[in-house]
């Protein structure tokens, strides 16, 4: 994976676009994501079932990975078992 790559969940509708990060294995609902949708969906791991929100950006602790959720789903995102967090963004007044 590289910036611009779209990753699909193996367990739900979640789809993310990579903003930052290369060659990192991202999981959704506890199962590896890939650039092709699986033929059959795997079971959602209850430990990673908080769901994803469309339009939110997800980052790891040191911000080396950033993913934009372009389709929401039931699974939640993690890398190596550590959940990704929603990136805080300070809302700005619309300037255009």
């Amino acid at each position: 994976m590289k910036p611009g790559t779209k990753l699909k969940s193996a367990v739900c509708d979640t789809e993310v676009m990579v903003i930052k990060g290369t060659n990192i294995a991202v999981d959704c609902g506890g199962k590896p994501m890939s650039d092709t949708a699986p033929a059959a969906r795997a079971d959602l791991d209850a430990a990673f079932a908080e769901g994803t929100k469309m339009g939110k950006r997800y980052v790891n602790a040191d911000s080396t990975v950033e993913l934009l959720c372009v389709k929401a789903g039931k699974g939640s995102l993690s890398i190596g078992g550590t959940p990704l967090q929603i990136k805080d963004s300070k809302p700005l007044p619309s300037s255009d």
Partner: peptide
Amino acid sequence: HANLLSYILGTVEFGSASPEEAS
């Protein structure tokens, strides 16, 4: 694309407008 994408993602929250809002 990366410049414009960065600008929009950094300044706009997706779907944040209510249906009444019009620009």
